[in-house]
Amino acid sequence: DESNKPILLPNESQSFERSVQLLDQIPSYDTHKIAVLYVGEGQSNSELAILSNEHGSYRYTEFLTGLGRLIELKDCQPDKVYLGGLDVCGEDGQFTYCWHDDIMQAVFHIATLMPTKDVDKHRCDKKRHLGNDFVSIVYNDSGEDFKLGTIKGQFNFVHVIVTPLDYECNLVSLQCRKDMEGLVDTSVAKIVSDRNLPFVARQMALHANMASQVHHSRSNPTDIYPSKWIARLRHIKRLRQRICEEAAYSNPSLPLVHPPSHSKAPAQTPAEPTPGYEVGQRKRLISSVEDFTE
């Protein structure tokens, strides 16, 4: 099969070098950035008060330690540790928490760990991170309901609301924008112990962030949302095809390698009803078989 044979790379090609550099910018793992907010007593309706908090309760602090690993920003190499735009020179604080497994990295933009500057009256330095995160974990210690939209931002799609209760338990629920209701189930609340709260809140936030990324990708319907490693695979396959075309153009005697095509017509299947918005969006999480067989 010609399409699977190794090909020689061009010795000097600026377009090839640019493509390789672009490939280096696509990590081999999925990345997520999640905002974390603490809401104190009497702050449920005040964005400024929430963003001005420099610490929270003892249970909130224990919750943070379970979310991930504490890292010092100045020691991080952005090409190895995903920071979601946090500055490593102290502009966004000294520490944050991050978490990773074999296929993804997540960083938490924690408002109480970011510096509260006197010259920044409206807390814009914090909002440029927190307001651009799709998902926020809100530790609501106010005793009042927290409403979506209290923290203004164009991309605040989903809130994971943590409400501490007695007996070391917590109520965990989801809020989302109306255009996200087909992807996020907000109907079920959970009672979770303090011990298990970081794991549950983190998983709910990661799932909500993946759904938000799919939702946000609708602005470019021709580019369905893939995982990062599938995006790398697609980029490599496009690069291979372009090299083959350039080689055939410079030397017409060489065969032009095309991806294999299936001449056999697909079997006719009964027509199915058109899937609704929710089903269609969830299918976009699934990769096409052509990603692996071309």
Rank of each mutant, 00 (worst) to 15 (best):
E2S: 05
E2K: 08
S3H: 11
S3G: 14
L9C: 15
P10R: 09
N11T: 12
E17I: 13
R18V: 05
V20L: 11
Q21Y: 10
L23P: 07
L23Y: 06
L23K: 08
D24A: 05
D30K: 03
H32Y: 12
I34S: 01
A35H: 02
A35G: 15
V36I: 04
V39I: 06
E41Q: 08
G42H: 12
S46V: 02
E47Y: 04
N53K: 02
E54A: 06
S57T: 03
Y60V: 00
E62H: 05
F63T: 00
F63E: 00
F63N: 00
F63C: 00
T65L: 07
G66T: 01
L67E: 00
L67N: 00
G68Q: 05
R69S: 15
I71T: 09
I71D: 11
L73H: 13
K74I: 05
K74Q: 09
D75V: 05
D79A: 06
K80F: 05
V81A: 15
G85V: 03
V88W: 07
G90S: 09
F95M: 05
Q105T: 12
A106I: 14
F108W: 02
H109A: 03
I110K: 03
I110Q: 03
A111Q: 03
L113I: 03
D118Y: 09
D118V: 11
K127N: 06
D133R: 03
F134M: 07
S136V: 14
I137Y: 00
I137H: 00
N140L: 00
N140Q: 00
D141M: 01
G143D: 03
D145G: 05
G149D: 13
Q154P: 15
Q154K: 15
F155T: 08
F155I: 04
F157C: 14
H159M: 14
H159V: 10
I161D: 02
V162M: 02
C169L: 03
N170I: 00
L171K: 04
V172Y: 00
L174G: 01
L174Q: 04
L174M: 12
Q175M: 11
K178H: 11
D179R: 04
D179W: 04
E181G: 07
E181N: 06
L183G: 02
D185M: 03
D185A: 03
K190G: 14
S193V: 01
D194V: 00
P198S: 11
P198R: 00
V200E: 02
V200F: 06
R202C: 07
N209S: 13
M210A: 02
A211H: 12
V214M: 10
H215E: 11
H216C: 06
R218L: 13
S219Y: 10
T222K: 14
T222W: 06
S227K: 08
W229N: 12
I230P: 12
R232Q: 13
R232W: 06
R238F: 10
R238G: 15
L239M: 15
R240D: 14
E245K: 07
A247N: 12
A248N: 08
A248I: 10
Y249G: 08
Y249Q: 09
N251K: 09
N251H: 11
N251E: 14
L256R: 12
S261G: 12
A265T: 12
A267N: 08
T269R: 09
P275A: 13
P275L: 10
G276P: 13
G276N: 10
Y277C: 11
Y277V: 13
E278I: 06
G280I: 08
R282T: 12
K283E: 15
S288Y: 06
V289Q: 13
E294N: 09
